[in-house]
């Protein structure tokens, strides 16, 4: 194994204590699905389904317990009149985007997990520890992006680990390393965000006005209370076209109001009971 191979493949020396993530620049994505294959081969994930969906070239449909990378295809050839022949620079008229777990800063799945199986690693990524998870499945509805899912065969929750084992060995995550056009870029989140802002202004100068960052604070695609997403995206259409929520919410914000209100109601009814008993006595 080449020591610190990530320096060769991504120019990044991986050290615990720093926060790492993905910047997915969809304007460079050619929809080749190398990320899907590299992820399955590294993590030994089984194939799940041989069915032609008719959703353009996307037969993977979505992320699941055995699919941790999913490339979405959205055909938008009939922009304006007739079919496009002159296109905005980089990717246009056929949107392709490699979707992945967002490794949110305030991760609802992590905050919901009652056993501590889901935890934040020393690389600031979110991982399901397979020796702890008892398959309660609370993380599944908690995730605002519908990423994590239970595997019905081994009864555990599974999702992208940002190649936690590879990071431990100084290796760049398999999908980022394989990506032929560097649409998926691995690195420190801070650096990636700088590079992303720079890329957006570059694209705006080239006339790609619809380019914006999704998952980076104070940008059109900011994700509110979730904070920044360690795996964030540069998109050129509204998030919903890629099946992403425009303004996802942080589930744990609702614990306080719900619990306090509920207990108040319970207390109120208990007092009423006491009053009634006292009155009848």
């Amino acid at each position: 194994m080449i020591p610190d191979e990530a320096e060769l493949t991504a120019g990044v020396k991986i050290e615990p204590g720093k926060s790492y993530g993905f910047f997915t620049d969809t304007t460079r994505c050619i929809g080749c699905k190398a990320c899907e294959v590299a992820c399955k081969e590294w993590n030994l994930l089984p194939a799940d389904g041989l069915h032609l969906t008719g959703m353009s070239y996307d037969n993977t449909v979505g992320l699941s317990a055995s699919t941790w990378r999913h490339v979405a295809f959205i055909e938008k050839i009939s922009d304006g009149d007739g079919r496009a022949t002159e296109m905005a620079p980089y990717q246009s008229n056929w949107l392709m985007m490699s979707d992945v777990c967002k490794h949110c800063h305030n991760a609802p799945c992590l905050e919901a997990c009652p056993t501590g199986a889901l935890f934040r690693t020393e690389f600031d990524t979110v991982v399901v520890q397979q020796d702890i998870c008892n398959g309660c499945g609370y993380c599944v509805p908690a995730c605002p992006f519908g990423v994590v899912e239970l595997n019905m065969i081994d009864g555990k929750a599974h999702k992208c680990t940002l190649c936690y084992d590879r990071l431990k060995g100084g290796l760049e995550p398999a999908c980022a390393k394989a990506c032929p056009t560097d649409s998926i870029q691995f690195g420190e989140v801070g650096e990636l965000q700088q590079r992303a802002h720079q890329r957006v202004s570059e694209l705006h100068e080239l006339g790609v006005d619809s380019a914006y960052l999704y998952g980076v604070p104070n940008s059109p695609g900011a994700t509110g209370d979730l904070g920044h997403l360690n795996a964030f995206f540069l998109l050129t259409a509204e998030p919903e076209a890629y099946n992403l929520p425009a303004a996802p919410s942080r589930a744990s914000n609702r614990v306080g109001p719900s619990l306090s209100f509920g207990l108040a109601a319970a207390a109120g009814l208990a007092l009423a009971a006491a009053a009634l008993f006292g009155w009848q006595k």
Binding site: R120, T121, Y164, D165
Partner: peptide, 17 residues
């Protein structure tokens, strides 16, 4: 949410290479 939740599997995790 992080250190306390870390399991022994995660501590000794290494790439299979």
């Amino acid at each position: 949410y992080s250190k306390a939740a870390e399991s022994s599997l995660s501590q000794n995790l290494r790439p299979r290479l």
